[in-house]
Write a protein that binds this DNA or RNA. Sequence first.
RNA 1: CGGGAUGUGGCGCAGUCUGGUAGCGCACCUGCUUCGGGAGCAGGGGGCCGGAGGUUCAAAUCCUCUCAUCCCGACCA
Length: 571
Amino acid sequence: MRLSSYLLPTLKESPADAEITSHKLTMRAGMIRKAAAGIYTYLPFGLRSVRKVEQIVREEMEKAGALEVLMPMVVPAELWQESGRWEQYGKELLRLTDRKNSEFCLSPTHEEVITDVVRGTVRSYRQLPINLYQIQTKFRDEIRPRFGLMRGREFIMKDAYSFDLDDAGADASYERMFQAYQNIFRRCGLDFRAVEADTGNIGGTASHEFMVLADSGEDAIVSCDSCAYAANVEKAQMRTEPGTVAEATQELRLVDTPGRRSVEEVAQFLAVDPACLIKTLLVQTDSGERLAVLVRGDRELNEIKLCRLLGCNEVFMLDDDGVTAMTGAPVGFAGPVGLDCRILADLEVEFIRDGVTGGNCADRHYMGVNPGRDFTVEQYADLRSAEAGDGCPRCNGTLQMWRGIEVGHVFKLGTKYSEAMKATVLNKEGREVPLVMGCYGIGIGRTVAAAIEQHSDDNGIIFPMPIAPFQVLITLLNPKDEAVLAAGEKLYDQLRRAGVEVLLDDRDERPGKKFKDADLIGIPIRVTVGGRGLKQGEFEVYMRASGEQKMLALDKTATWLIDEVNRQLAG
RNA sequence: CGGGAUGUGGCGCAGUCUGGUAGCGCACCUGCUUCGGGAGCAGGGGGCCGGAGGUUCAAAUCCUCUCAUCCCGACCA
């Protein structure tokens, strides 16, 4: 491709609304342009990288035995009503009506459609296992799209769905996909971890997320420093140290704590350790029940663990009025003593002796509080979020904390959808059984963005070879110089004939601009063709990642480059 | 949806408080000179200041409403 006839609108400055590296660089390198919040056009240069990732995904999916399909984006409401998600899914589901007033949605995921297809086409266990995937544009009307391709409303996703006769088969399918995902992200040049994850509103029995490690990541994950345990903090457990319930030594007493509401303020005012405080969180479930949840003052409640325990989809923190209605005190003075509702508590709370809680009265706290004696906890459970330094739940190691970008997610769905939608096959005994499903997603654009988060410097992008829009950039310093043009074009032709993807910068621009653009767009190998080198019979080859530079004889360069590209593609 | 902020040529910004002829840098077009890390000079094109209403002799500027975008929280590939 000749840059003189290409569309590569590079920007000297980052658009004001771009916050993180990959958003700034995808804009500056002329890869994307925004059409609306979370909705983007992929320009030619950006699309090439997207296609590279898609191709890697296709290869690994096919290798794992999955078959490509393409499902509709506009899906009739009936299918979603059948699974029950038409009501459940909420506002992320963009609903529309056609001219006949029939209801549809823009599908954010395709469990319903694929299950409908499979129940109509697969009748016998002999046809199993089967795994169908597609690479397609999804729409989720996210509350807050952000960071360019990182969280779009419209985005390209690979989604795969496996169908098996039984759990053992489903486990094997899951394992195959898990392995394929490892291959995909490794080939994309990413530093990632597979972590245990919550299943969210997709549902199912088990799941792993593939997290690209990056400070800009929206997820927090923990991993053990000595074993393989790794999990999203939403899900992460921690080792519970065996506690001893000591004797209470203090009487319960109310003390004045004027204006002290937060854990820090109260702890400091009363000169006690925040770990001695019992934080009382008043929540309401989606079914309307109001209850109190206790965690140690220095810990955070994990709402997802709470939901799992309560068996509900969502819990909401009570607002100021709700808190006052329950405790008779303003926010900041709630406590379990004398509170008239169910009380749940994190495991650690049981071992707090002579603690501090809110007094359910303005500007008062209780001291000398002892669980069991002063209030009754219905159930102790693991309800807090894991933190760096917590013990690993699987071994004696210690948990470390990271930020991650979720580029892939695999789920064991079980029979949630197949039962709801009556997707069954006949087993060996001739009996109808529901299919056991799995589903597997990869954010394609997000993977490109994540790669850029991990591979850039102050000058721009540094594409890993396998997902680079072009593999080699030939920079003609002065295309008007016939010798330069001839030498550059010859190399360009040689490389193209060998199947190398090469971009020829034949623009009539000054060298400075060409070098700046070259660094910005991050093509892994740059060949500079200029009068200076030609006089010595050499091309100058520059490696974007390492900064390494070498002079190569004119007639040896093409071969060297072909080898180098292949070497880098192989990883 | 709650909290915060911003909308002025393609991009980055000033001007708004204190109303009075719409500006700067980059980019773009033409010419000349330049040409190994975002060139210089000269000339040129492009914006009814997000939109609607109002106040006023006069509105980018003041008021009301609205739309859009971004950031912080709950959702997710």
